[in-house]
């Protein structure tokens, strides 16, 4: 297939590519060996003693390690799913409210008496300002700091949780609900304007237009972006271990490394590399899902115009800790 950078290759180019690939592959492998494998091997990092607790079923620590990892991952997933569900509900609401406020700002309320009119207009303006301010602050603060803020402030205001999970979930919800609200809002605003006009023409109010007509369509189009946000949330749960000692996958790994050090097994690298591989696997599945859905959405009724740039995935968080 022809792309922006290259023409469709002919038989000669294809042959050249194959030859060059055959030459390049061993070179790359050699480079990887020299740069990564050899230095680690020189320092005994491939000693089976270090990897046995992870991969040798007969090792006494094997079941313990995987038990703890299972628990850790379950907590990670629990925090991620809860945060995502709350963020989705609150984010949708915030997105709809912000859209509604934007509509209301155009109205001058001519049917109201004069004092009520000024009151309504100024309260709409206040609402616009407040919601905008909330979005900017919640979005512009690192999630790491948000977690510390939630953890410091909530107990002081008399909200005390036994389970540290909730501090993490609340902080992640604050950040991600705002991000999701913006995703949904931009989805609604980028729909063809005929959708809104037709809906107003058949007599629906602006709130009904948003909820019944624009929101469902925006959701469909933005579904891949929403799922990618799940990857961000999954990655951000790892901050919970650092800030509020929530025992998710990363913190359990950290604790196990400490424990193994006590046993004179310095397996920090094997443990963290395995953890990294697990993160990649989980998130890869999630992003594949997003990709698959994007493909399906593309062939649906609301096909993107081909000259428009594709939906930008919101990459933030520690991803974002935002990345």
């Amino acid at each position: 297939m022809s792309s922006v950078l290259y023409d469709t290759p002919g038989p000669r180019t294809r042959a050249k590519t194959i030859v060059a690939s055959i030459v390049a592959a061993p070179l790359i492998a050699l480079l990887a060996y020299l740069v990564i494998v050899q230095p680690l091997a020189d320092r005994g990092q491939f000693d089976w003693k270090l990897w046995a607790p992870i991969f040798d079923t007969s090792d006494p620590n094997f079941p313990l390690v995987w038990d703890r990892w299972r628990d850790g991952w379950l907590r990670t997933l629990k925090a991620a799913v809860l945060s995502m569900v709350f963020s989705f509900v609150l984010g949708s609401l915030l997105g709809l409210v912000r859209r509604e406020l934007r509509e209301l700002r155009r109205r001058r309320f001519p049917d109201q008496p004069r004092p009520a009119r000024t009151g309504l207009i100024s309260s709409v303006l206040a609402g616009v300002g407040l919601s905008r301010g909330w979005v900017e602050v919640a979005r512009g603060t690192p999630v790491y700091v948000t977690i510390v803020v939630v953890y410091t402030f909530l107990p002081r205001w008399g909200v005390d949780f036994d389970d540290r999970l909730w501090y993490l979930v609340i902080a992640l919800t604050i950040y991600n609900s705002v991000v999701i609200a913006e995703i949904i809002r931009s989805g609604m605003e980028n729909l063809p304007s005929g959708q809104r006009e037709a809906s107003l023409a058949i007599g629906l109010g602006s709130w009904q237009t948003s909820v019944l007509v624009l929101y469902p369509q925006a959701l469909r189009i933005m579904l891949p972006a929403l799922i990618s946000q799940l990857v961000v949330v999954l990655k951000d749960t790892s901050l919970g271990g650092l800030t509020v000692s929530y025992e998710e996958a990363l913190r359990t790994t950290q604790q196990m490394v400490e424990a193994f050090r006590g046993l004179n097994i310095a397996n920090g690298i094997p443990m963290f590399v395995t953890l990294g591989v697990m993160y990649v696997a989980v998130n890869y599945v999630v992003s594949r899902l997003a990709h698959y859905l994007q493909g399906r959405m593309g062939s649906g009724r609301h096909r993107r115009k081909s000259d428009e740039p594709p939906v930008q995935m919101v990459e933030a968080g520690a991803g974002a800790a935002g990345a």
Partner: peptide, 27 residues
């Protein structure tokens, strides 16, 4: 244009996009 070279780039992106920065820092 070379698939093995492209593979290196793809591997880099896949790895670092999917693991938390916290883990990168630990490593």
């Amino acid at each position: 244009p070379l698939p093995p070279v492209r593979g290196v780039g793809t591997a880099y992106v896949t790895v670092f996009r999917n693991i938390p920065l916290t883990v990168v820092m630990f490593v």
